[in-house]
């Protein structure tokens, strides 16, 4: 990162500020992304007679989130073993 005319302290504060904004957004964004992906996998229709999620759909959503986290952790572990 080259920002020659900011002093060290300002750079650190700027970074801290951007990191905090980022972290706040990250969790929301992850949940929104999982919802979108698992929605596509698990929710088949939205008709006017049926505006509750049924038990099959609920189990699918929960499994979907857990498989997503499993896969992420599996990938991280395997990348670390490689290096």
């Amino acid at each position: 990162m080259s920002s020659p005319d900011f002093d060290q302290k300002t750079q650190e504060e700027l970074k801290k500020f951007l990191d905090a904004e980022n972290a706040k957004a990250q969790m929301q964004s992850t949940i929104h992304e999982f919802t979108g992906r698992c929605w596509d996998k698990c929710i088949k229709s939205a008709t006017s007679n049926n505006n509750k999620i049924d038990s099959t759909e609920k189990a699918c959503l929960e499994n979907c989130v857990n498989r997503f986290v499993d896969t992420s952790m599996f990938i991280v572990k395997r990348l670390q073993n490689r290096n």
């Binding site: 992906r37 499994n63 498989r67 896969t71 599996f74 990938i75």
Partner: peptide
């Protein structure tokens, strides 16, 4: 970013049916 991309691209390929365990 790499982890996200692998996950996104491999999830569809590997989890056509989602089961209760990994």
């Amino acid at each position: 970013e790499l982890i996200n991309k692998i996950n996104n691209n491999c999830f569809n390929l590997c989890f056509q049916n989602i089961g209760p365990s990994f």
